[in-house]
Design a protein around this nucleic acid. Structure first.
Length: 512
RNA sequence: GCCAGGGUAGCUCAGUGGUAGAGCAGGGGACUCAUAAGCCCUUGGUCGGGAGUUCAACUCUCCCCCCUGGCACCA
């Protein structure tokens, strides 16, 4: 089995913002963690390219829908590349392999009587792409401006029955407390399940929406939103894939260990539609995925929104401060699941304090002292300073435990406990004094070895979050071939490289 | 109106029946290997308000106020 983790697929009707970047970095970090510490992972992310909004936006500027989404898709890909995202799969919903698998799923559901056709007439919001009921009317009995253009029409569509799976779903969520991380979202989901009624409309007639996946048994229709988008988690994991497709072995990946999503799409899409779809497709309870629901990034206390003009552009930030400062800040300054407040000042503070001052300087002074007092040669492999091997294994255990729960910020804190101990060790032992006293030769060797070995392990601990910095650290320690997490991998007589600041301080907040 | 979560040091938060904690910010000190980084010490709080249970309440019970999220309803 491989640890399978996904993000939601980004809708290609606008530029990526900090929320997209946060989510994909979290997925990347989780994937890298499992690759390094548990041997394997499969990280899937992608783009949601179909739908009415895309069709309309493309029409407006006079290009074909495919060309329109390709442009935005390239933009996302370029940014993910800049942010050092290491993805194992790329879920672009216009991929023919996805289309074929979605059609197979639809056909199967149809064959088993899980889809039915029904005529419906009523008011419809063009902007929100949904039928309106009296619930949506405002005080004046009208449909407010938030719905945009509202039209009345009658239409026949395909429906997926939700309500008949309600009891199963409620029971499933009640008996599987870990279905949703963090725990506090569960009650919200249970409340939503209690209110569940009706069926999900899963089609649109082609005359109205052609930019989608055709129904195999009714070619006048295409699939609508969630049936297309949610199924990416299966189709790009190799579900119903044809031989030679280049997709992974589904049996090795499923069930997904974490669908990383924003709190806005837990209910109803991922918490209700998705498990019911899987259940209807005859996935058993143990084959259900887990949801990891994160909060939103606010900006100085306000919601980020286009109308407020406070949308944070991760591309600009990465250019201004570097991808590592951004990755570190987004992972360190938020409690997984809760909202966070974005501040450029905090980003710079976190970088300078944690990375430049604490960790970077520790590595720099460690290597520098070794060079100065021992020409970079390590000795005393078997006698670390008292307690350090234990501190390291405790920090590692803590770090791993926190990572398994997606609490990346707490995992980072566990690693920094080690950083503080190492910096304190330098002060307490004062190698610059030891170096002047030949009688303390062995003690000095022990301190220098302990510090170097701690730095090596720290490089491994930060590697999921700061992959290229970790390589720079290992390279300076000449330890690129020593990647075990156990204490004492650096051999007696090992020679360190020369020190160069790993994280140069950011001296001022950029203007742009 | 209902459900959930929260109101603890200037800021972000941890704590759950027994003399208030961390990080950051602020103040002081010793040191010098280092990216003027790091280390040590330290000033801050009537723990939202009120009542109750208890030998003892930040921690339990009740009432109230405020904030956040979700849901509902109506002129």
């Amino acid at each position: 089995m491989r640890y399978f983790v996904t993000t939601a697929i980004a809708y290609t009707n606008g530029d990526p913002h900090i929320g997209h970047a946060y989510e994909i970095i979290l997925g990347d970090v989780i994937g890298r963690y499992h690759r390094t510490f548990n041997g394997n992972a499969f990280f899937l992310t992608g783009v949601d390219q179909h739908g009415q909004k895309v069709q309309q936006a493309a029409q407006k500027i006079g290009v074909a829908p495919y060309d329109f989404v390709r442009g935005l898709t390239d933009k996302f890909l370029a940014l993910w590349n800049k942010l050092e995202i290491q993805k194992d799969g790329w879920a672009a919903t216009t991929d023919p392999r996805h289309k074929r698998a979605v059609q197979k799923v639809l056909q199967e559901l149809y064959d088993r009587g899980q889809l039915f056709k029904q005529r419906y007439s009523g008011y419809y919001s063009v902007r929100q792409e949904q039928f309106l009921t009296d619930k949506e009317r405002n005080e004046q009995g009208e449909f407010g401006p938030e719905w945009g253009e509202v039209i009345f029409f009658e239409e026949e569509n395909w429906y997926f029955p939700l309500a008949k799976h309600k009891e199963w779903l409620r029971n499933f969520v009640e008996t599987h407390p870990h279905f949703v991380i963090p725990e506090f979202r569960r009650q919200e989901l249970l409340n939503a399940i209690d209110r569940l009624s009706g069926d999900l409309c899963v089609s649109r007639p082609k005359e109205r929406l052609s930019w989608g996946i055709e129904f195999p048994f009714d070619p006048d229709y295409v699939t609508f939103v969630w049936f297309d988008a949610l199924l990416n988690y299966l189709t790009f994991a190799g579900y119903l894939a044809e031989p030679g497709s280049g997709l992974p072995d589904f049996g090795e990946l499923w069930p997904c260990r974490g669908h990383i999503i924003g709190k806005d799409i837990m209910v109803p899409a991922h918490g209700i539609y998705w498990p019911i779809m899987l259940h209807a497709m005859q996935f058993s309870d143990v084959q259900m995925p887990r949801l990891v629901v994160h909060g939103w990034w606010n900006v100085e206390g306000h919601k980020m929104s286009k109308s407020l003009g406070n949308v944070i552009d991760p591309d600009t930030l990465a250019d201004a401060y570097g991808p590592e400062a951004l990755r570190y800040y987004l992972m360190r300054d938020v409690v997984t699941g809760h909202d966070a407040d974005f501040s450029e000042e905090r980003l710079v503070l976190r970088y300078n304090t944690d990375l430049a001052n604490d960790l970077g300087n520790l590595i720099n002074r460690t290597i520098n002292m070794s060079q100065r007092y021992r020409k970079g040669v390590l000795a005393q492999r078997n006698s670390p300073v008292a307690g350090f091997a234990e501190h390291t294994s405790r920090a590692l255990a803590n770090y791993r435990d926190r990572f398994e729960q997606y609490m990346v910020n707490e995992a980072i804190e566990a690693a920094w406990d080690l950083v503080s101990r190492a910096n304190a060790l330098v002060e307490q032992s004062a190698p610059w004094h030891m170096a002047k006293d030949p009688g303390q030769k062995d003690q000095l060797d022990a301190v220098l070895y302990t510090l170097a070995e701690t730095c090596r392990i720290l490089a491994l601990l930060v590697s999921p979050i700061l992959p290229s910095a970790a390589e720079r650290i290992l390279s300076q320690l000449k330890a690129s071939d020593f990647r075990g997490t156990a204490w004492g991998e650096l051999p007696d007589g090992h020679v360190l490289g020369l020190p160069t600041p790993i994280f140069p301080r950011i001296e001022q907040i950029n203007d742009y």
